[in-house]
Amino acid sequence: MGKLLEIKDLSVEFRTDKGIAHAVNDVSLSLEPGENLGIVGESGSGKSTLAHAVMRLLSPSAVITDGQILFDGTDLTALPEDELRALCGRELSMIFQDPMQCLDPSFSVGYQLTECLLAHRICGKAEAKERSAAMLERVGIHEAKEVMRRYPFQLSGGMRQRVMIAMALLTGPKLLIADEPTTALDVTIQDQILQLLKDYAKQEDLSVLFITHSFGVVADICDKVAVLYGGRVAEAGTVRQLFYRPCHPYTAGLLNAVPTMEHDKNVPLQPIEGTPVNVFRLSEGCPFCDRCGKAAEICRKECPELKEVEEGHFAACHFAE
């Protein structure tokens, strides 16, 4: 099977007044058709920058210094603007954390939905309306015709997120980039949205690049997962490999730090001590070495390469095995 998305040695830096922030460093990832890949990391780990780089939505201060992003064999980083516009929103779509900021408050939901079909000249106005209504029904909005007449502020947070998902899926993309789409939602609504995305992806053979900070969400909808730390891939593999045999101390630490519904209340949680690495001042060594219990002399001197610990399971740690 050919790869749908292949990110090769990607590095992105932000040139700011405070210096250069190395947001993404040497990241390589790939996604097969129909596969869901989760990207997990804390704030500042580079996960959103990575997603924005794929859609070429980076702010002007960001520069892709190295690497390629291949979508279906085409390098998105080198594509002229007009060809990229024809691709984005049609073959690959994106949904964001806050739907209120992404929907235009002064146009009705129906107008904004049909707009993406019309802009890509996929069909005429009448058909666009019908298709939009059908898609709204599909993402769980009943009375679709009524909702299309409304404006974003008249909808609840869960409804807005459904509208945004409908908008992203209308053009029948092959890849959906979901940047923390459920973080701002209540758990019961989050659960519904995740099921919706999961079922749709399965039925339509859609690949999802799912950016999140929650391991619970990853366990629910992803096949593969990559953990980012300090702009680097710390560990990558199938969901089962990472959850049941984490090889990087950071992954293991994150999995242990989250309180679960079974955790003994009298046993303190095991936090990862210290604070996240400053991407303005990356040292030569492993980005995690200041917070790592296993850190040795070599960790401070040499940044570990990603190595394969078992088939399809990679970890960037000197002691991974």
Partner: peptide, 19 residues
């Protein structure tokens, strides 16, 4: 409903739950 909706950070148990 609230308890059922909590994501479980365990792939096997997450897949096994009924909705």
């Amino acid at each position: 409903a609230l308890i059922d909706a909590i994501p479980i950070a365990d792939p096997d148990r997450s897949a096994a739950r009924t909705r």
